[in-house]
Design a protein around this nucleic acid. Structure first.
Lengths: 341, 341
DNA sequence: CTGTTAGCGCATTCAT
DNA sequence: ATGAATGCGCTAACAG
């Protein structure tokens, strides 16, 4: 570290102090039983007293690993980082927790999927032991190709097909979509808008759940009510505005993210449409602010702590040569005022 | 990287292919003029074709640096990561942008200030070139002690005093507090609550601005209106509830963060108090969701992109042995519906 | 139980 | 303009 001037303490220094060899110090610090209890204690005391810190660079270099895990957040365009969705942040928190528990460090990187250098850069730079991808987006093909020859991958998203070479972690999207829609139906709503971009695997599954709920109670599937809006705040707003302008009749909205739901509600209220009286709204993710939204937002909760843990578990397993399974998290319907409950 | 089995391509491999020595390859890849134009081109072509990636570990080890910057996010208690405030996330986005531009990587770490292992661990682990601290919190003393003998520090927060050994980057908190309060006064409000925990340097300055605005127009400083609530969502909610229960008269709230403001608004509305008709509210940060809150939130905007850039600039300067100055960012009042505008 | 030796992959003298 | 030799700090054989 350039910042501190004085030469750092080395193992050889400790060795001199303790009157032993570097190897013994190395072993003692690693807690090896191979070394005499007293010498070990002495060395550890010395290290603590002199505030010795191992040179991680040297260690990683020798060990050919880094105890570091990269988390890649796809960013649509510069500035508009998708991480701006609190859900990803909360998930990141869960990942950080788990990564720390495993004694690893977390490297955070943004990526444009468009840009050539992508996952591969990390893979080969030897700078991380593995890569967690947050959101597979519409990159399944590309990811799958990479996963074919590289195993240190763990992906937040949805299982796509059987020929998939990487494991995903994600909530039970189909069931989540079903629960949300079913809840709206149970509130007496009949014209339920689906707000989301079904090209994304996760969203596509939520959409399947939406349709299942409708069919189950004999409601028609009205294409007019399916708004293929992109996964962003402003798009949710614009989409809802267009829906209103088009004069489409609806009494509920299922939005595939809370942020999206909030944007929709903003649009509704600007038009004098009341939530939940005129239109009931359910979101997805149960982001922290949702409880403090006005009206408080009904949402489908995904457990990010558990999600982060599973992502890390899967990754470490993959690095060890195992083939971890795709994991599906429970979803929970959190009923608040926005759905009329 | 354990994940990929086949031995990685080394410089010596490229050297063999090109029929030159390792040194030449090293120089060619670094773009040195010392090497013949044609050989250089050949080597670079070869490297690209065979998808050569330099072993970052080895490089860092030799160079004694890491091209890595750690960002430390203080977390109050496990699980409740302060990063859950979108503002920090947005700031993190700005930092990531700047870090990338400088060709560095970003290591993200949570820390409990209580826990012994803190900044020092990073400093001595040689794993990062420097450390960015997000929010000095109430740790000024501790940080200052560290900064005395270690220069690779850059801190988001507020300048505390002249004997300070580290540089901060932050918005003009006093002016921000003033602008917010003055705006409420201009809306005809007279009983303005200050919601924030003044132990934090940043908040203390915002509070100073609050008082300046009041004094300027001859309004009394009413201690009853100053709520020393902690910097968290739920506390903002609880604090506001208590204020109402106590029967204190007020017609406006200046909250020191948007999240805080939203929590307050939720509390108000639960009690049937209308925003902005009965109570006008101004927040701080102008977080992305604020525009889509209901009512849309008036707030003091801090430029996180610029903030991130300055934090990184300051850090790199500090690492190079310079003594960068504390930076103060402009603030901008964004008027939306919550303040009655 | 402990010391000696060697080498990870790179960038950099110092030669040519 | 290029090559040979050196060493960064550590761990892991291999000997004792």
């Amino acid at each position: 570290m350039k910042g501190s001037r004085k030469r750092a303490l080395l193992m050889s220094d400790l060795a001199k102090m303790a009157g032993v060899s570097k190897s013994t110090v190395s072993r003692a610090l690693a807690g090896s039983d191979l070394v005499n209890k007293e010498t070990r204690a002495l060395i550890q005391k010395l290290a603590a007293e002199h505030n010795y810190r191992i040179n991680t660079n040297a260690r990683n270099f020798f060990l050919q690993n880094s105890l570091t895990i990269a988390v890649l957040l796809p960013s649509a365009n510069k500035g508009d980082w998708r991480i701006s969705d609190p859900f990803f942040l909360e998930l990141l928190g869960g990942i950080a927790e788990a990564v720390n528990e495993k004694g690893h460090q977390l490297l955070l990187a943004k990526t444009h999927p468009q840009t050539g250098n992508w996952i591969e850069d990390f893979i080969n730079a030897h700078t991380t032991d593995g890569v967690i991808l947050i959101g597979q987006g519409s990159q399944h093909q590309k990811i799958n190709e990479i996963a074919e020859h590289f195993k240190g991958l763990s992906v937040w998203g949805a299982e796509v097909d059987d020929g998939q070479h990487y494991a995903t972690v994600g909530s039970d999207n189909e069931l989540g979509g079903y629960k949300a829609t079913r809840h709206l139906i149970d509130q007496g709503r009949r014209h339920i808008v689906f707000l989301g971009y079904t090209t994304l695997p996760e969203v596509s599954l939520r959409h399947a759940g939406y349709q299942r709920a409708l069919l189950e109670v004999g409601l028609p599937i009205d294409k007019q009510l399916e708004r293929p809006a992109r996964h962003s705040r402003s798009a949710g707003y614009a989409s809802t505005k267009k829906l209103i302008e088009a004069g489409v009749t609806f009494d509920a909205i299922f939005a595939v993210s809370d942020l999206f739901a909030m944007a929709a509600i903003t649009a509704l209220q600007e038009e004098g449409i009341r939530v939940p009286e005129d239109v009931a709204v359910v979101g997805y993710d149960d982001v922290a602010i949702s409880a403090f939204y006005n009206p408080p937002l009904t949402s489908i909760r995904q457990d990010r702590t558990e999600g982060g843990r599973l992502l890390v578990d899967n990754l470490l397993a993959a690095i060890d040569g195992e083939t971890p399974p795709c994991r599906v998290l429970d979803t929970e319907l959190i009923v608040r005022k926005s759905s009329g409950g």
